[in-house]
Design a binder for these strands. Structure first.
Ligand SMILES: NC(=O)c1ccc[n+]([C@@H]2O[C@H](COP(=O)([O-])OP(=O)(O)OC[C@H]3O[C@@H](n4cnc5c(N)ncnc54)[C@H](O)[C@@H]3O)[C@@H](O)[C@H]2O)c1
Ligand SMILES: NC(=O)c1ccc[n+]([C@@H]2O[C@H](COP(=O)([O-])OP(=O)(O)OC[C@H]3O[C@@H](n4cnc5c(N)ncnc54)[C@H](O)[C@@H]3O)[C@@H](O)[C@H]2O)c1
Lengths: 267, 267
DNA sequence: AGCCGCTTGTGAATGCGTGCACAAAATCCG
DNA sequence: CGGATTTTGTGCACGCATTCACAAGCGGCT
């Protein structure tokens, strides 16, 4: 699996069509429950969306190796999931497989991209050009995948105007203005925690509906704004929990083994 | 073995005890199914662990502001979750609240830290000291939270020996050796995707049981190794999906509104 | 053509996580 | 001292997610 980043760019295909989110299930229109505002448009599980993105990357790797079709089993193991789960995930976006054969790699790629809204580029702004912000601004993997970084912001006067990754840093008070005029879709917050909420507010003011937050704080946003957080400290703590759990399991297993052996049992 | 270990009550004070992982559910010990190796020791939901880490941070913020006790409602809103969920999460680790009052901030802090295994420091190694690796190595938030970075690795000969964040960079072929001798608990992979698997193998070889992977690849590891991945491209794609979905909802709402208004309905 | 083997797509079963709602506990207050 | 008030801890029900298992469909082979 020789993944080569920078998958050229098949960002072609303006595909003026709608993302075609399925909404009907087995029995779509039966008035059971009718929970007031039955906006049952949202049908594809959040967890599945995350995996679709993984499949997409695996697929692009396979396409590079010249694969034309792929079975659910292959794709699933490559993506590290159960094949049944993969098929169910794919079934949410339509039926693009051929029984007895598998899926056509490029068809599947296009369809997943469409559902994920990747046919249109989503412009990104990064706020807080410190250690992390520099890494993000310089990272080539985002533009290459349809997420061009089109604005940088900071408060530090020494940074304003300096180009980072080919883009000059602007002052945070221009966030609403610039985001609105450049039609920024996604704001990335890499400021210190204390500044994150204020920055977020400015982004929302500028019409940004999606925020990726690296600062370890819980952001407060209006309902129509989607926030995802990446919290490395929490990731480490989850891992730490597993260390502790495993250690304890080892201990209890050892005592169990000791007990067993003292009983003459075989473990 | 019918140990329904309902931690009998207030073992509060003596902190030196084991994490006391609960294992029983409603009907703990009935031989139904008996799925071969019934190591049902793991009882605290993964999702809850992640939230516990969030609570911990909120708590530390509250402690700084001099709060002594906190109610589930306060803590929940500060952490951005439902208060019932918070109480359920806390119930997994024991009963440390006082009805009618709330939780003592420092008691709760200590208990969560214990369950997460944060009473012991977990040593961290970072592999791949590029853009991202530099940011990680320089980040002060990790040591401050009990995760000292104690080893850095790269292949680039220009980097070997150079101190980054006060720690010299070592060559990746020394990973197994150094990780074993320094008792590294967590390995962080920030290399290009193509190198990630090989690096991971070396970490495992060095006795590292936990891996945090920033490279966009699915790592293959033996069963006892825990991997968490942080994949920014996927985060962006999930956000992109929501942009697409919302856009479509807006469209369908608009058409619905048009239809409704043409019918004389009120929307 | 017709059968056979392979793979998809999906009903159904199970399990997990969430949120409600309330009894139990503890404090406060008159 | 007893009841009002507050807040925890959890039983329960519901909905989402995962997994199984298999019929339906497709291509290839004879
Ligand atoms: N560096 C890491 O590896 C790492 C890891 C985990 C989490 N984080 C989090 O990411 C965030 C950034 O980390 P970092 O290491 O890049 O920090 P940093 O201190 O290197 O950079 C912060 C940047 O934000 C700027 N800034 C400060 N106040 C601002 C404001 N009000 N508006 C806009 N910009 C402002 C600063 O000028 C600086 O350039 C922090 O919240 C940190 O906790 C970083
Ligand atoms: N920079 C970002 O903001 C960002 C964002 C998302 C994902 N990522 C991912 O994080 C990883 C690192 O990104 P980066 O921007 O720091 O890349 P980078 O190119 O700046 O750094 C990579 C580093 O890894 C080292 N390296 C190369 N091969 C190695 C090997 N076999 N063993 C050890 N080290 C090796 C290189 O010498 C370099 O120092 C990549 O997988 C990238 O896809 C980065």
């Amino acid at each position: 699996m020789a993944r080569v980043q920078r998958d050229g760019g098949d960002d072609a295909e303006p595909t003026a069509e709608l993302p075609a989110v399925r909404d009907q299930g087995p029995s779509a229109v039966n008035g059971r429950k009718v929970p007031m505002a039955a906006d049952k448009v949202r049908s594809i599980p959040e967890a599945a969306v995350a995996r679709l993105a993984v499949y997409l990357r695996v697929l692009s790797g396979m396409a590079e190796q010249g694969a034309v079709t792929v079975s659910s089993e292959e794709l699933a193991t490559a993506a590290g999931v159960n094949s049944a789960k993969l098929r169910k995930d794919l079934s949410y976006i339509g039926t693009y497989g051929t029984r007895g054969v598998g899926y056509e790699v490029d068809v599947l790629t296009v369809e997943i991209e469409r559902v994920l809204g990747l046919t249109r580029q989503q412009k990104v702004a990064v706020v807080g050009i410190g250690n992390l912000g520099h890494a993000l601004a310089n990272y080539g993997g985002f533009p290459g995948r349809g997420f061009p970084v089109e604005a940088l912001f900071d408060v530090d006067p020494d940074l304003i105007g300096i180009p980072v990754g080919g883009l000059p840093v602007n002052h945070i008070e221009d966030i609403p203005d610039i985001c609105a005029t450049r039609k920024i879709a996604i704001g990335v917050i890499a400021t210190p925690p204390a500044a994150a909420q204020a920055v977020c507010d400015r982004l929302v003011e500028g019409g940004v509906h999606c925020v990726l937050n690296f600062a370890p704080v819980v952001l407060q946003v209006p309902g129509h704004v989607e926030v995802r957080k990446v919290d490395l400290a929490i990731e480490l703590q989850i891992l730490s929990f597993h260390v502790a759990r495993n250690a304890e399991q080892r201990v209890s297993r050892r005592t169990a083994a000791a007990r067993a052996s003292s009983n003459g049992e075989v473990v």
